[in-house]
Amino acid sequence: MARFEIHVTYKKGIFDPPGATAERALVNLGYEEVASVKIGKYIQLEVADGTSEARVREMCDKLLANPVIEDYRIERVGEA
């Protein structure tokens, strides 16, 4: 099996309510150095050997991310 890790984050300029809330909370807790928090999704994907990254990209475009509001980053992390 091949393993991929996928990070899904909001596109630049899309408001991220959980991130903004965590950011305010951290500052309120005294971590005044915090400038920005963005919260996204982390997906671990196991697929048959030989599956191309293009195929994984297709899965992201179709279901795992919404290209209207989200960007994603795919990383092949080896064999399971």
Binding site: I14, F15, V68
Partner: peptide
Amino acid sequence: AEAHLLPGALLRNRGL
């Protein structure tokens, strides 16, 4: 919106 029959998307409410 997900089916692209309508444009845009619906995000989490601003106040969470």
